[in-house]
Design a protein around this nucleic acid. Structure first.
Lengths: 238, 238
DNA sequence: CGCTGTATCGAACGTTGTTCTATCGTAGCG
DNA sequence: CGCTACGATAGAACAACGTTCGATACAGCG
């Protein structure tokens, strides 16, 4: 009968990890049950080793989070860099932002960590650079470029945050699906006094069962339209 | 010699709280040293009582956070409702958003909680309503209005998040001020290869010592410009 | 063989949110 | 006045968490 891993016949063997395996399992835990599920004890158990061993690879939980985040951001960065470039930098910015947002939809826990510490997360810094390089193709000054990229990242983060904290436990467990969860809010909102909350009543049907990606794309479009206006006519038309 | 509170001459008297005092002290702790400082034991000590007593007023820490957030959001809502209305709904939206952002600058911990649970935080819901009511004055359909308000809240949250997680402990303790903290990043960024990071070098001077409020206002302006364009000409000109 | 540095692990510590159980104090009532 | 019910308080204990400590295994090399 084949044994798991390469542990030999009897008695507890010591586990042998690697930075790669530590980060992979950490990401797996985050993916499966969100940030609260990533504990040193759960991670050690998955690695088949002791709790303290993990501290040989990372100095603290903060660093573990940073490294795990950077680990997956590597793939996101590759996706962004693999995007085809057009002659419109704003179109490119949109595609980049959407790619980033898609990654966060797939891994909601990313939202809270992916821009926390750009010295420890080099892939996030590179992504920031790639976004910024598109603004270099626009007729803006340095401050406007800085603010433009901050705005775009802000839209991504802002849209992603409520996404990340939406699941109150039940959605992650699969006991309640997202539509039912939204429906509860919608039901509560519909019972508000229409005179006191005319706007909430106006949009409750839109809210019920809405798509987060649509919501994000709309917010992004407003920012990009504003940016296009700020940049003035494209250089080719001058 | 006057004694603290109204405890009588000798022996431990039981403390008597109230919802008000619990929330006030909770907010005080959050203001003084951020979210990690709000523990049941620290709160109990400030109230001069036992740990378990707090559970008579709130069922969990999550509820404590929600109620404390709603507590201060009451004042924010009052500020927003006290704003003078103009004939331009977008100008009003801007003033409201800035008022909200100012409140978050004063209390960075707000960013993470103020839109978490609108059924438990009625003041946040009311604020959401007030923002939305401005879009009722614009020529938009229901979905566009829903997305517009989401976008504005998203910009606020997105700009506020890095604000809230900036202080890595030293800034809160007052050991290191914010400019020095930004300077460290700027110094690290300046040492990157200019060929690999042209954008980062372009904007590092803007980043160094930048004002968060400027950054936010710029991001907000892009969204509002996009929204104004989307809404088309004002009804008066038709 | 012994030494050294790398890598591992169990046990323990302090702090956190939460629960259990016991108790106090006062308003209401006979 | 005494008794009771209940609103309100609190200490002790529990499980889970991040983190540290000291001991120990293993491979490479002289």
């Amino acid at each position: 009968m084949a044994r798991l891993q390469d542990r030999s016949s009897q008695g507890r063997r010591r586990a042998s990890h690697s930075m790669e395996s530590v980060l992979s399992e950490a990401v797996a835990l985050l993916d499966e049950a969100g940030a609260p599920a990533l504990t040193f004890r759960a991670l050690a158990q998955r690695l088949g080793g002791g709790v303290a061993s993990i501290y040989w690879y990372v100095a603290s939980k903060d660093e573990l989070l940073d490294q795990a985040t950077d680990h997956v951001m590597g793939a996101v960065l590759a996706d962004v860099e693999g995007l085809a470039r057009t002659d419109d930098p704003i179109d490119d910015l949109r595609e980049m932002a959407v790619t980033l947002f898609d990654a966060i939809v797939a891994r909601p826990w990313l939202a809270a960590y992916f821009m926390r510490n750009t010295t420890a997360q080099s892939n996030s810094l590179r992504l920031y650079e790639r976004l910024g390089e598109q603004t270099l193709r626009l007729d803006l000054d340095a401050r406007q470029r800085f603010h433009a990229v901050s705005a775009i990242v802000g839209v991504v983060v802002g849209s992603a945050i409520d996404l990340g904290q939406e699941p109150p436990q039940e959605v992650l467990d699969g006991a309640v699906d997202r539509d039912e969860f939204l429906g509860r809010y919608a039901r509560a909102w519909r019972e508000l006094d229409p005179e006191d909350f005319p706007f909430v009543h106006e949009i409750v049907d839109e809210f019920d069962g809405h798509d987060d990606v649509d919501q994000f794309r709309s917010a992004l479009e407003l920012t990009l339209t504003g940016l296009r206006l700020q940049a003035g006519p494209p250089p080719s038309s001058r």
